[in-house]
């Protein structure tokens, strides 16, 4: 299964980023092999609509689930349209997030976990 973790760095040992649309990087992880592909967030500095743009990017990259800290309403709608599941939790590293996901310890959300612009406050 291909999941994506919002991250501050490029690999499994990087600190996760609790923001989705304003995350620094995305680390795509194959949960079977733990192979990773890191990508900059193309929408991280968008003036507006970062959640939607990043969600579109994640859908296009073929991720089946997003593991993040918080997800706003616009990003959630866009991810749902692309059939991507959203799991939230608070771990230290990308690896911890993947392990928590595989251990069933992340919460799957069926709607936004925070309001719009939450990630603009510099939460990380």
């Amino acid at each position: 299964m291909k999941v994506v973790v919002t991250s501050t760095g490029p690999d499994l040992d990087s600190r996760m980023d609790s923001r989705l649309g304003r995350a620094e990087k995305y680390v795509f992880v194959d949960t079977n092999t733990l192979e990773t592909i890191a990508s900059d967030n193309p929408a991280g500095f968008a003036s507006a609509g970062a959640g939607v743009q990043s969600a579109k990017f994640i859908v296009e990259q073929g991720a089946e689930a997003v593991l993040t800290g918080n997800c706003g309403p616009n990003a959630f709608s866009a991810l749902a349209a692309g059939g991507v599941e959203v799991y939230v939790g608070s771990c230290l590293t990308v690896r911890d997030m993947v392990e928590a996901f595989l251990g069933g310890k992340l919460r799957r959300v069926s709607g936004a976990s925070v309001e719009s612009h939450f990630g603009m406050r510099g939460n990380s």
Partner: peptide, 11 residues
């Protein structure tokens, strides 16, 4: 991104 096409859906 006020109008966004994801897969076969337009949001």
């Amino acid at each position: 991104s006020a109008i966004t096409v994801i897969g076969k859906k337009v949001l």
